[in-house]
Design a protein around this nucleic acid. Structure first.
Lengths: 255, 255
DNA sequence: CGTCCGTTTGAGCTTAATCAACGGACGTGG
DNA sequence: CCACGTCCGTTGATTAAGCTCAAACGGACG
């Protein structure tokens, strides 16, 4: 197994050039419905070769200057905040097709992006990104939408942490990840691979790992959600939706 | 005293047209350093007449479609989230010169913008905003920066709520508001007007009003911060900075 | 075979919520 | 003018949610 520490050392170019055009997966995400071949080719030329990132390696290091505009092609990337005293928070998990909204941030930032499991990302250099946005109105609009989605997501996440109980927070997180991972409403029969561990669930929900363990047990016993062996199982989708307060309209955003 | 309930009824056009050019106050905010007269005039022509909003009246109602791009000219505007069960969170206080980042959000949103105290806002229509951004690269860059700042702020706020104690949260909020309000580091002698009450501090920090009261008492007794009669007093700036972990680089963002 | 990491479980403690009562400021209406 | 209700802030007593500390277990891996 590859276990490189340094992110630059873990750069590997993989051979999926042709099908990688900014947003390979998500139908409604930045590139959704990009049927115009010219646009596609312009995108393809503008971004860098896909880069493979080892588990735990940084895609963007903390304080790294606004390098490029990254997009996740495969795997999950966590957007992490590390405070002075070493405490950490996970703001967001970027799934395939998601933009990593870090090029917006200044260089004194404490945020970084780290691969959870193995991930592949591609990037636009600032210059090519600028040009692309100017020349391709469709691209620009989609990029704007992606940023808006990040802001929207950040607000949702904040409201959850401020108001919801531990069980609700964990359920919301796992439900949200399931929906975004499947691009549809999960079924009871689905087993959704999630390269997470309980520590990371804790960082994303503002809970300790110990309490996450207890909370997962509780969710399991209530036949809502199971999380074992890096797989999410939604035992009872309707009950989970009710429990988390997930609304149909909000779902649209993430599918 | 004016006490209009309906936001549309509270629309009053005030006569400060000339000096209102998107960002009348903040030096580093969207319009900072806009010395080019052409740009100024273009901005002036593009936005609507300033509108006065009564205390508690909505600037943008929940679910209101992405109407315009609002900028606060005077007073404070709270960005509020109202959940189904009626619980509320305040994500952010927009101060004079700040953009209200709601035109980014969809129409099924639960967020709204409400005047805290009396406020004045102006707006760009979507069309004129689009045109302005296309034609004025400087404006576009500043707008981008404003959005980035909102995202940045949302992440900071999240990290605070997830990790900090009640006293730290309240202190951070009041310190941040003071810095943004003064555009400089507060001095011990400053008394900063803040049209807030303890309930709103609670909504912004994820605490109950009762606990905010106790927390303020504690901060007062420790000679850190006083909050009385809608005035913030930073008793000991250095100690507050230490206590909240406010760093010099982060300050730059808000001054 | 030992070590390390992630998870589980228990016991006790801390923080902040909840419930409840009270007082002052302010506005309203008699 | 005073009586009343409402809103906001304060304080006390009690409760509950989640943290901390501690121990133990299993699997992965050297």
């Amino acid at each position: 197994m590859i276990a490189l520490k340094d992110s630059s050392a873990s750069v590997v170019h993989v051979g999926v050039r042709r099908q990688c055009y900014y947003c390979p997966v998500r139908a409604r995400a930045p590139c959704g419905g990009l049927r115009d071949t010219n646009s596609l080719e312009r995108l393809d030329l503008a971004h860098t070769l896909p880069r493979r990132v080892a588990p735990g390696a940084t895609v963007v290091a903390p304080g790294e200057r606004a390098a490029s505009t990254y997009t996740v092609l495969n795997g999950w990337v966590a957007l992490i905040d590390t405070l002075k005293d070493g405490q950490m928070v996970i703001h967001h998990f970027a799934l395939p097709g998601d933009v990593i909204p870090l090029e917006l941030l200044g260089d004194q930032s404490t945020r970084s992006a780290v691969a959870v499991g193995e991930a592949t990302v591609c990037a636009f250099t600032p210059a090519s990104h600028q040009r692309l946005r100017r020349e391709d109105g469709l691209y620009d609009a989609r990029y704007q939408a992606a940023i808006a989605r990040e802001l929207h997501y950040a607000y949702d996440h904040f409201a959850d942490i401020a108001l919801a109980s531990a069980a609700e927070r964990v359920a919301k997180l796992l439900w949200g990840l399931s929906v975004r991972s499947l691009h549809r409403r999960p079924l009871a029969s689905d087993l959704i691979p999630a390269p997470l561990n309980q520590i990371q669930i804790g960082l994303a929900t503002g809970l300790t790992a110990v309490h996450v363990s207890r909370t997962l047990k509780q969710l399991r016993e209530q036949n809502l959600i199971t999380f074992e062996d890096h797989m999410i199982g939604i035992d009872n989708p309707r009950a989970v939706e009710r429990f988390t307060g997930a609304s149909a309209d909000l779902m649209d955003m993430w599918m």
